[in-house]
């Protein structure tokens, strides 16, 4: 448990910062909704004049602006990105900081099996993410409720909101796997930004080109909010893919961490 506690202590400040971000940002953005709804007729007119490709790239479906859940699903595109950034950065740094700070020899020469070290680090990261998720879910329920005086479709809302957790788990495991594999990561933040925005961009392109193939390369697009709203369900094959990859990265990271030579600090 000592590694878990120490990790939690090290991520205390950033966890608080993320909690505040979600708790403040989401209600703030959601509060802009009445503006869009009041003007929804005008906005629809305007949007209908825009080329299809632009709408696709921005993931704008004119119907999104008519209800609070629709508006939430639009906002969530960017919230999902921040969720990915947080999780990926955490996954990368929870492993790579030991190399960067040259503490890896210190930690791995202690009387703890490597498996326990990995599992404690994973648990600590999950705990940090869990706290952010609680903050996100509370903020989401509260702000959508405020914008929906006549109630809202809770199931659709929940399906969309839950993808926050899926995205975070996916990117956490990906980050830990990458950090185990590449033990010379100098800056977790720059790699995070590169990967996250790369994936986001590929997602945009896949929407414009309406390309299934590209969608597979963009984990952020595994959960298509338009589809969820229309069908009240996830796309099974993308949901399965997301979970299989998440478990695969988690397992691979674990195995490599246990078997790998620790490079000497230089």
């Amino acid at each position: 448990m000592n590694i878990f506690v120490s990790e939690m202590r090290q991520y205390r400040k950033s966890a608080v910062a993320w909690v505040i971000t979600y708790a403040v940002l989401l209600p703030l953005v959601m509060s802009a909704m009445p503006m869009f709804v009041e003007e929804s007729g005008a906005i629809k007119d305007m949007l209908s004049k825009l080329p299809e490709a632009v709408l696709a790239s921005l993931e704008i479906n004119p119907d999104l602006f008519t209800g609070s859940v629709g508006y939430f699903s639009y906002v969530f595109l960017y919230i999902g990105l921040t969720a990915a950034v947080q999780a990926l950065n955490l996954g990368l740094s929870v492993i790579s900081k030991e190399n960067r700070m040259k503490t890896v020899d210190f930690l791995l020469s202690k009387p703890v099996p490597r498996a326990f070290i990995y599992l404690q680090k994973l648990s600590a990261a999950l705990a940090v993410l869990f706290i952010s998720q609680v903050s996100f879910y509370i903020a989401a329920v509260v702000s959508v409720s405020i914008q929906s005086p006549d109630g809202f479709d809770f199931k659709t809302f929940a399906l969309i909101a839950l993808t926050f957790t899926f995205i975070q788990l996916f990117f956490l495991c990906l980050g830990m796997f990458l950090a185990v594999l590449f033990d010379r990561i100098k800056s977790a933040v720059s790699l995070t930004m590169g990967v996250a925005f790369g994936v986001f961009f590929i997602g945009m392109v896949s929407s414009i080109a309406d390309s299934e193939a590209l969608r597979y390369l963009s984990p952020l697009r595994y959960f298509d909010n338009g589809y969820i709203i229309a069908n009240g369900a996830y796309e099974t094959r993308f949901l399965a893919l997301a979970w299989i990859l998440t478990l695969l990265f988690a397992a691979a990271g674990f195995v490599v961490f246990i078997k790998k030579d620790v490079r000497a600090a230089v």
């Binding site: 700070m101 503490t103 020899d105 210190f106 020469s109 202690k110 009387p111 703890v112 600090a265």
Partner: peptide, 19 residues
């Protein structure tokens, strides 16, 4: 290894610290 490590003290050649 982890059994042995209980009774081993190791001083790495590199200095290290957690931020």
């Amino acid at each position: 290894a982890s059994e042995i490590a209980k009774d081993v003290g190791y001083l790495p050649s590199e200095v290290f610290y957690y931020d």
